[in-house]
């Protein structure tokens, strides 16, 4: 077990407004870390710092003991779907093949090895039968799986997912977490969500992020920490199983 990602006293300001303050985090290569917190709490910013898309205002970030920009091809990133054009004319297979960029040995286009890996990624994400469909013909949940397959085609050592449950209805959500469970057998996962109940069933560690980061060693997030996180009392629904949910005010 080694450290895949380490953040040491990382702060990030946007126009002098502090977004993240003194974040310390170590992600081991067998972790399944859930990061929860309110909207605007800095969750997506944290992922972008790890990916090297943003520079920290202070502190250091190491990914596989290198600077994030140098190591980011070893990470798989699943963005929120809303960030790009859903009417773009592209097939499922061509989207997934983009994961081979930066790894392919083919000068022009992709070679058979790339196609084989993309196919394996689509099989794993359970979208192989959709491979010839245009992206515009897919449902929100299917698109999410395509983006996961694209990230898997990168052959990542860590998978970072930004709000992957936003477009998925509850039933699809179940099988979605089965998929993440299976993936976790071989790679580390960081999963961001504002949906506390959804996240806490699957992950091995939960961190709460609202400008500062509070880590919890074991899964269940207690109501105190959530109240602290959201600063106002929230109505909590605790899922023991899928079917029985009870309110804890």
């Amino acid at each position: 077990m080694g450290a895949a990602i380490t953040l040491d006293n990382v702060s990030f300001n946007y126009d002098d407004r502090p977004i993240l303050e003194n974040i310390n985090l170590t992600l081991h290569d067998d972790d399944f870390l859930g990061i929860v917190g309110p909207n605007g709490g800095g969750k997506s910013t944290l992922l972008k710092l790890i990916l090297g898309l943003l520079e920290p205002s202070s502190g250091t970030i190491r990914v596989f003991d290198r600077a994030p920009e140098q190591a980011r091809t070893r990470l798989g990133y699943v963005p929120q779907f809303a960030t790009f054009d859903s009417a773009f004319p592209i097939s499922v297979r061509d989207t997934v093949l983009q994961g081979r960029l930066g790894k392919t040995r083919s000068r022009v286009g992709y070679n058979r090895h790339d196609h084989a890996i993309a196919e394996q990624a689509m099989r794993e994400a359970d979208i192989l039968d959709l491979r010839k469909h245009p992206m515009t013909a897919l449902s929100g949940g299917q698109r999410q799986r395509v983006l996961i397959a694209r990230a898997l085609a990168c052959e990542p050592e860590v998978l970072l997912l930004d709000e992957p449950t936003a477009n998925i209805d509850p039933h699809q959500g179940e099988t979605f977490f089965d998929l993440l469970h299976r993936l976790h057998e071989r790679i580390a996962i960081v999963l961001i969500s504002h949906d506390v109940g959804f996240i806490s069933r699957s992950v091995t560690r939960v961190a709460c992020l609202n400008r500062t980061l509070v880590c919890h060693a074991t899964t269940p997030v207690d109501s105190e920490s959530i109240k602290h996180l959201y600063t106002t009392p929230v109505s909590m629904v605790h899922h023991d199983t899928c079917l029985s949910a009870k309110d804890t005010p």
Binding site: Y77, Q98, G99
Partner: peptide
């Protein structure tokens, strides 16, 4: 366009992801 089709496609589709793939 022929030589850089896959890179151009990635740029147009999702520039952020293209950046992450080292383009």
């Amino acid at each position: 366009s022929l030589l850089f089709f896959k890179q151009l496609l990635a740029l147009c589709y999702d520039p952020e992801f293209a950046t992450l793939r080292g383009i």
